[in-house]
Each structure stands twice: as C-alpha cells, then as structure tokens.
C-alpha cells in the first residue's frame, strides 16, 4: 500500500542556518510514529515542514500528491497539526475553541451543522474536556489547555495527525490518556506523527521511532532498535538504564555524559 505521507530529501533553512537536511520518510495509514531527539535537533521544524507550513528543499507527498499543489482547505481537512505550547489568544469558551477544528469542513455558514456539532462533542468527550466545555479557555490549567488543543485537532477528524509535544505539561495520567487517544486514532486508520521527550513513553507507544539529531534522521525503526545506549549517548549525551518490562522498554536516564 502506498504511504499516506512521503517525504523526499526534505530540508529547511532559517536564514543561512540549515535546520533540516535530507530527510526521507514514509508513514502509512494506521501507523504511530514517534519523533525523538535533543533540543534544537529540528523536530519541530520537521513537523512544520511535513504539515506544509514551511517551505524548503525536497518534496512532500500526501497520497502521492505534492502537498503544495493541494488546496489549503483540502489539505487542512486531511492534516491536523497540533503546535507546541497550546496558546490561546482570545478568552473563548472551550467548546468554541474545539469547534475551530471544523473550519476546513465548514460550508460557509457561521452556525455549525449537526455533523460539526457531533464531531466537536465527540472530541470533547474523548479528551475528557466535556465538563470544561463552557469554561473560558484562558483560565484553564496547562494540562487542561493541552487536552483542549488536542480536542481541536481531533474534531477535524484528520487522516494525518502531526502532534508537536502533545503531552508536555500533562500530568502522568493524562500523558497516558492522550497517547492512548492518539494510538486509538491510528488503529482507526489515521497516520500519527508525534514528537515526544519521554523516551519510555516513546518506546511504549511507537510503532516506529525516528531519532533526529542536528537536522537529520540518525536512526529509524522499532523502539528496541533505535533507543539504544549508543544512540542515546551519541545524540542526547546521556547514559541510561534500558530494560524490557512487561513487553515495553523502560528508559531511566542516569545522567549526562
């Protein structure tokens, strides 16, 4: 089966600095790919580039169509992008924020249609934010905002979800809840690419791990193949204890080298 997303020799520059170079990547529907790498490795740039938000070298194909040639609104229906930080600029009601995810689907009417309302309610329910629906988004805690931000993406029912640090700022339980949700979306047929910092969570949830360092993919494959002592030392500059427990890798960082 042809991959849903394919990237060929993708690069990006910021001024004269090269942030990303020669990235080849293919992600199939139903796959959950986790991107790991040290700060400044180019993870966010990679995700933004894949989302079509950044120009640069190389080509990105969505269902074998160049992403630049797809109308923005059509692309928006298929690709959901969850940026880092979960910032909201206006004190909107939570339900209204989640409804923003329906913008690419809107028929032009300002009132939401029945299918829009249902998608929004489902997303609120799935992320456990339904009780917050009438709250003002700017008064929420960091963890609550992160879940609302994810609900906004889920409401659009995209085929490809690009999530940049979706569980940063979440407490331990909601880290599991959110990643379970993303895995469930993948099982339902979406392709998911998520940037994570927690290596144990990465190992536990990823079908495939991409290790990014200095603007390149330096290792790619099953968690056990990528998360190794040598790779962690070479990229993060740490030594760690890596053990298999209940069928998952558990990574305990022990210190900086």
């Amino acid at each position: 089966m042809a991959p849903l997303l394919r990237a060929e020799k993708v690069g990006a520059t910021l001024g004269r600095r090269t942030i990303l170079e020669g990235v080849d990547l293919a992600v199939a529907a139903g796959e959950l790919v986790v991107v790991i790498g040290p700060n400044g490795a180019g993870k966010t740039t990679l995700v933004r580039r894949l989302a079509g938000l950044l120009d640069g070298a190389g080509a990105i194909y969505l269902d074998e169509h160049r992403v630049e040639t797809i109308a923005p609104r059509l692309r928006a229906k298929r690709v959901g992008y969850l940026p880092q930080g979960h910032v909201f600029h206006w004190p909107l009601a939570v339900a209204d924020v989640v409804a923003l995810g329906r913008i690419p689907h809107a028929s032009g009417a300002s009132e939401l249609g029945e299918s829009d309302r249902e998608a929004v309610l489902q997303a609120l329910e799935a992320t456990g934010t339904l009780p917050l629906a009438e709250r003002t988004v700017t008064t929420l805690s960091g963890g609550e905002r992160a879940r609302v931000a994810l609900a906004r993406v889920l409401a659009g029912a995209p085929d490809l979800i690009l999530a940049d640090e979706p569980v940063a700022a979440l407490d331990v339980r909601y880290q599991f809840v959110v990643l379970d949700l993303l895995r469930e979306r993948a099982r339902a047929g979406a392709a998911v690419i998520a940037v994570l910092h927690d290596l144990s969570l990465a190992a536990r949830y990823a079908d495939r791990v991409l290790l990014v360092d200095d603007g390149r993919i330096v290792a790619e494959g099953a968690p056990t193949a990528v998360i190794t002592h040598e790779n962690l030392a070479a990229t993060f500059g740490i030594h760690a204890e890596i053990e298999a427990r209940d069928g998952h890798l558990v990574v305990t960082p022990l210190g900086a080298n």
């Binding site: 933004r48 989302a51 079509g52 938000l53 109308a71 923005p72 609104r73 059509l74 692309r75 928006a76 229906k77 690709v79 959901g80 992008y81 969850l82 940026p83 930080g85 910032v87 909201f88 600029h89 206006w90 909107l92 924020v97 923003l100 995810g101 913008i103 690419p104 931000a149 906004r152 659009g156």
Partner: peptide, 14 residues
C-alpha cells in the same frame, strides 16, 4: 477566529 490558535495552527486549518 482561527488565529486564536496562533499563526501556524491557523495556517494548518487552511
């Protein structure tokens, strides 16, 4: 309305 989420997210919404 989309810009509530910032420029990147608004662009990603088409």
């Amino acid at each position: 309305r989309a810009l509530t989420l910032g420029e990147d997210a608004a662009a990603s919404l088409g």
